[in-house]
Design a protein around this nucleic acid. Sequence first.
DNA 1: CCCTCCGTTGATGTATCCATGAATGATGCA
DNA 2: TGCATCATTCATGGATACATCAACGGAGGG
Lengths: 218, 218
Amino acid sequence: MEKMSAEDRAYREIIQLILSGQFKPGDFLLEVDLAPRLDMSRTPVSRALGRLVAEGFLNKMPKKGCYIPFPSPEDAEQIFFARMAVEGQAAASAALKATDQEIRKLKRILRTDQEAVAKGSKEIFAQINEQFHLGIARASRNVYLEKWVINSFWRSNIYIFYFDGFYKAPVREEIPPQRTPSQHLAILKAIEERNPEEASLQMREHIRNTYELLLLGR
Amino acid sequence: MEKMSAEDRAYREIIQLILSGQFKPGDFLLEVDLAPRLDMSRTPVSRALGRLVAEGFLNKMPKKGCYIPFPSPEDAEQIFFARMAVEGQAAASAALKATDQEIRKLKRILRTDQEAVAKGSKEIFAQINEQFHLGIARASRNVYLEKWVINSFWRSNIYIFYFDGFYKAPVREEIPPQRTPSQHLAILKAIEERNPEEASLQMREHIRNTYELLLLGR
DNA sequence: CCCTCCGTTGATGTATCCATGAATGATGCA
DNA sequence: TGCATCATTCATGGATACATCAACGGAGGG
């Protein structure tokens, strides 16, 4: 990615800043702060923030700025419910359209998954998890579903990072990933068997499980 | 809407320009043309176009500009498939969460629907159709589903306006709405009976029907 | 003591200027 | 004639100056 516009750089870097925990919900992302930090003028920063708002990643108050939305049980329910819809459909579509190569790649990802869980590496697990979900979205061969999956996945990541810390326990523990790998395997198995209904069902079940794990005690 | 930013004005006006048929697929929407036309500088126009691209209405080529995407059978399949997912889920959610007031409002809309079809008024029919679909999206009480429904609805409107004119018959006839009103009624009935599965099923069937009507002969 | 008003501050919103790059067409050479 | 090359043109991409507006805080009057 040697040739990337300043706006694209700003877009990625801002996401990185958020996901790396430099900001907490309610914090304003000020153009005047970010611009010098990213070594560019306000213009591309402002446009990148506009994109993030359009994608639902950030909220905005006119004339005030963009801020990380406050997590709430209602919003969490909405985002995970929405994820069930789009990722379920994406899995079904992937079962119909994924190439053998893509399926092999997903298998490779899941092997690393097992190892990551075995080692208890939270970082790697999160990365693998993202690769798996976004890989299925891509295999759906549907640009709209893919975009929505990406957006809602990142958006729900905010919850995975922040939610319990603000509404529940003072210290945050890792996501208990006991059932996640087996669910991932079940999804991939359905896709491999070209069974869209089963793939959709398994995916929805998996997301519901993640949601319940996150919010309704553990 | 007395106090609206120039960017918001640009956003709405550009959508109007597109939907009123001033541009055809492949046409570039040039900032330098639009800015004087909307009586503002390039800045808010550019940002509005950026929003439209982020939302998937327009495509963009870096350093070249934004253009109305070319319709294609593949893209049509993708957008309608995606619509089935999100609107199906929205209908299910609406069946659970819609207030009685919202249901009454939807009923009112459908009464006008019947009349519009009876009179054969294409314009009114389109408007009613939008109100119905977006009304259900809103009743779902899920901001994510609602946003995606709005986006994909408008996006597929581009097809309703343009598709056949470019790929099939030279003259475009109205969408045969024979079955649409009864399908609308079936959806609303399921919502009123608080039956999410049935609402989802009917909505998906309705969208599939619209898709087949549009693309696979009629 | 409190409440109102107004000036200050600091951020976004907009306009404008310059940089950059892609497409086009003219030019000159083989 | 055919083709490569380069200058021109015209669009977006980015930087900067200015306008605008919301929040804050202090002065002044009740």
